[in-house]
Amino acid sequence: MLPRPRSVSPAAIGGVVAVVLVVGAVVVSLLLAVAITALSLTVCALVIRSLLASPHR
């Protein structure tokens, strides 16, 4: 005799969906923070290089 499959309550499904959405939002925000940091470091490096390469008056 095969075991009867358990039914999953809609509340459990909603909880899993909420956890997935929260984890996804955290991951996206961390990646966005890394991208913004990399962009700002690039801009700073370009400005410093430009200042160092310019002839002194």
Rank of each mutant, 00 (worst) to 15 (best):
C44W: 12
L39F: 14
G15F: 03
V23I: 15
L52P: 00
I13E: 04
P55A: 10
A45R: 11
S54N: 11
L2S: 14
L52S: 09
V43P: 03
S54A: 15
A25T: 12
G15I: 01
V27D: 01
G15R: 00
L39S: 10
G14W: 01
S40K: 11
V23N: 03
V43H: 04
P3G: 04
L41I: 11
T42E: 06
T42Q: 05
A45I: 03
L51Y: 12
L52D: 10
A11D: 10
R49Y: 03
C44D: 13
H56W: 07
S9V: 02
V17P: 02
L46E: 00
A12G: 01
C44L: 13
A18P: 01
L51N: 09
P5F: 06
V19T: 14
T42S: 11
A38N: 09
C44N: 13
V26T: 08
L52C: 07
V22A: 15
R4H: 06
L51P: 00
A25Q: 03
L52R: 13
S29Q: 04
L30S: 11
R4Y: 04
R4S: 10
R57P: 10
A11I: 07
S50P: 01
A25S: 09
L51E: 03
V16F: 05
L32A: 08
R49E: 00
A18K: 07
H56I: 11
L51S: 05
H56F: 08
V17M: 08
A33K: 04
A33Q: 07
R4T: 15
S40D: 05
V20A: 15
S40P: 00
A33L: 10
V27E: 00
S9T: 08
L39H: 08
I48S: 07
A18L: 11
S54W: 05
I36Y: 02
L46G: 10
S9Y: 05
S50L: 12
S54G: 10
L31Y: 06
A18H: 02
P3F: 05
A53M: 04
V28T: 04
R4E: 14
L46M: 11
T42L: 09
L41Y: 05
V23M: 12
V20W: 02
L2G: 12
I36R: 05
L39E: 08
L32Q: 06
